[in-house]
Design a protein around this nucleic acid. Structure first.
Lengths: 138, 138
DNA sequence: CAGTATCCAGCTAGATACTG
DNA sequence: CAGTATCTAGCTGGATACTG
């Protein structure tokens, strides 16, 4: 009774591992960029509407039109999260009605540049992944 | 009545955008790596238990111990998905009881190398993100 | 050892309606 | 224009129990 059981040791290992994950920078980054709308907003602000231009500010409504299937709730929520993390800046011009523009910060720009490596890998290798997938299923 | 309404045009834009996303290689890649356990298994097989060594095969039970808080269901499910995509290979040795080892394929190794860029960005910049987050909340 | 099968609670994305 | 508020259905991950 005084010794720890195997179940207790497993529980402790889980807690330690979860703590490790909570502190891991890579995990935190993944948690942020693994959101569907985060990556799409970063791409829009970083490469323009056609995904092949230069970074430029965009208005809420422009983003809403571009990411056609995003709900207002998710667009606002995602923009707030990115602003909170210092990845984009939000600028309100006191016109009537108000004009709000979003723009990548230098930090956001840096993240966008990193994402290009990911995009390149996808372009180079996803065909192969898809082929494996089809072969496995067949 | 014969002309398309604004609502219909929006619905069409959404469908087109969803179709674009479904075909986008980057999106497919993100869909795969944004899974919590996928990245952890890739890291384990690609860098060893300490996340700083060389790629090496690992057994099911070894992965299970290392990723202490993964459930059997998710471990098996994730390993199957990675095998399906040609990112890892599964080898069964007919011992009693059976021995199963998992190993990164060249394709998986290539993905693991790409993920290192992500890890580097995280190490270099997540502090800044976290600082922004704290400032925004305070 | 390396899984499979089943059930269920919790979270979240989306739809909808409303507003300064 | 650029949001906020609320409700809910559906998916997913975890717990649990069982097996060749």
């Amino acid at each position: 009774m005084a010794t720890t059981t195997a179940a207790q040791q497993r529980a402790r290992a889980k807690m330690e591992y979860d703590a490790f994950l909570a502190a891991c920078p890579s995990r935190k980054l993944l948690d942020r960029i693994s959101d569907k709308w985060v990556t799409l907003i970063l791409a829009a602000l970083g490469s323009g509407p056609d995904c092949a231009g230069d970074p430029r500010p965009m208005r809420y409504s422009e983003l809403s039109r571009l990411l056609a299937s995003v709900s207002q709730k998710m667009l606002t929520q995602t923009l707030r999260a990115l602003e909170r993390d210092g990845l984009i800046s939000r600028t309100v011009e006191p016109t009537v009605p108000v004009t709000v523009t979003y723009e990548l910060t230098p930090l956001g720009l840096s993240l966008h540049a990193m994402m290009r490596g990911l995009k390149l890998w996808a372009q180079d290798h996803m065909d192969e992944v898809l082929a494996h997938r089809a072969a496995y299923d067949g």
